[in-house]
C-alpha cells in the first residue's frame, strides 16, 4: 500500500512532503522516544508520534521511513516542514489520539 492510499481512508491531512506520497508502506512504528525509533523502526514504516521538531525528519530520512503521522492535530515546526519537503518524506496530520490512529492504521494494513 502506498502512503497516498491511507490518506482518505484515515482522514489525514498532508502537511508537507507531497512528493513522497507514492512511497510504499512496509508497516508502522509508534514511539515518542527518538532513540527507540532510531534503534527499532524499519525502512518503509509509517512513524506515529507527537514530536513536531525537525529531528523527527532527520530520523525519518536516516531510517528511510515512508511517512510521519502527527497525532491530535499537533502542528509541525517550520523547519520540520522544510526538511520534509527536501527529503520528500510526507508529514501527515490526524485529529485522533495515538491509540485511535494506530488502531485504524493497523486494521487497514492488516486488511491488505
Amino acid at each position: 500500500m502506498k502512503v497516498s492510499e491511507i490518506i482518505d481512508q484515515l482522514g489525514l491531512k498532508v502537511i508537507a512532503g507531497e512528493k513522497g506520497l507514492d512511497r510504499e508502506i512496509s508497516g508502522a512504528y509508534v514511539s515518542d522516544l527518538l532513540s527507540d525509533v532510531m534503534g527499532n523502526a524499519r525502512e518503509g514504516q509509517i512513524w506515529i508520534t507527537l514530536q513536531v521538531h525537525q529531528n523527527v525528519m532527520a530520523i525519518a530520512s536516516l531510517k528511510d521511513l515512508a511517512a510521519v503521522i502527527l497525532v491530535k492535530d499537533l502542528e509541525a515546526n517550520a523547519n520540520t516542514i522544510q526538511h520534509s519537503n527536501e527529503e520528500q518524506i510526507p508529514i501527515l496530520s490526524s485529529s485522533l489520539s495515538t491509540f485511535d490512529i494506530a488502531g485504524k492504521l493497523h486494521a487497514l494494513l492488516a486488511d491488505k
Binding site: D32, L33, L34, S35, D36, M38, G39, T49, Q51, H53, N55
Partner: peptide, 16 residues
C-alpha cells in the same frame, strides 16, 4: 521533552 534522553543511545551504539 524533545524525546531524547531515553537512555537508549549508547546501547544502540553497542548493538550496531
Amino acid at each position: 521533552e524533545m524525546g531524547f534522553g531515553a537512555g537508549m543511545g549508547l546501547p544502540n551504539i553497542k548493538k550496531n
